[in-house]
Simulated scan of single mutants.
Amino acid sequence: MHYSLLLHHPEQDATTLGEDAIRSGQAAFSAYARALQDAGVLVSAEVLQHSTATTTLRKVDGELVIQDGPFADTKEQLGGSIVVDVEDLDAAIEWARQAPPIDWGVVEIRPGATYTVNGAWTPNG
Rank of each mutant, 00 (worst) to 15 (best):
H2C: 14
Y3F: 05
S4H: 10
L6K: 08
L6D: 07
L6Q: 08
L7C: 02
L7P: 00
L7T: 02
L7A: 03
H8N: 13
H8S: 10
H8D: 10
P10D: 09
E11I: 07
Q12P: 01
Q12E: 01
A14F: 08
A14Q: 09
A14K: 09
T16S: 05
L17F: 01
L17W: 02
L17H: 00
G18C: 02
G18W: 00
E19D: 08
E19C: 03
A21S: 03
I22R: 11
R23C: 02
R23V: 00
Q26M: 11
A28Q: 06
A28F: 03
F29A: 03
Y32K: 00
A33L: 11
A33N: 14
A35G: 03
Q37L: 09
D38Y: 05
G40L: 05
G40Y: 03
G40V: 07
V41Y: 09
L42T: 00
V43F: 06
V43Y: 06
V43I: 07
V43A: 10
A45W: 04
E46W: 08
E46V: 09
V47Y: 13
V47G: 11
V47Q: 15
L48Q: 00
L48S: 01
Q49H: 09
Q49R: 12
H50F: 09
H50G: 14
T52V: 12
A53F: 07
A53W: 08
T55A: 04
T55V: 04
T56W: 05
T56D: 07
R58E: 03
R58Q: 06
R58P: 04
R58A: 01
V60D: 06
V60N: 09
D61W: 12
D61H: 15
G62M: 04
G62S: 02
E63L: 14
E63W: 11
Q67S: 10
P70Q: 02
P70H: 01
P70W: 01
P70R: 02
D73M: 12
T74A: 08
T74P: 02
K75V: 15
Q77R: 15
Q77G: 13
G79Q: 00
G80C: 02
S81L: 15
S81D: 14
S81A: 13
S81F: 15
I82S: 05
I82Q: 05
V84F: 01
D90E: 12
D90S: 12
A91V: 08
A91Q: 10
A92R: 06
A92D: 10
I93A: 12
I93Y: 15
E94R: 14
E94W: 14
W95Q: 09
A96L: 08
A96E: 13
A96H: 06
A96R: 05
R97E: 09
R97K: 04
A99F: 04
P100T: 10
P101F: 04
I102H: 10
I102D: 08
D103H: 08
W104Y: 14
G105A: 04
G105L: 04
R110C: 05
A113Y: 13
A113F: 12
Y115A: 14
Y115P: 10
N118F: 06
G119Q: 07
A120E: 12
A120C: 07
A120K: 12
W121Y: 14
W121R: 15
W121Q: 10
T122V: 15
T122Y: 13
G125P: 15
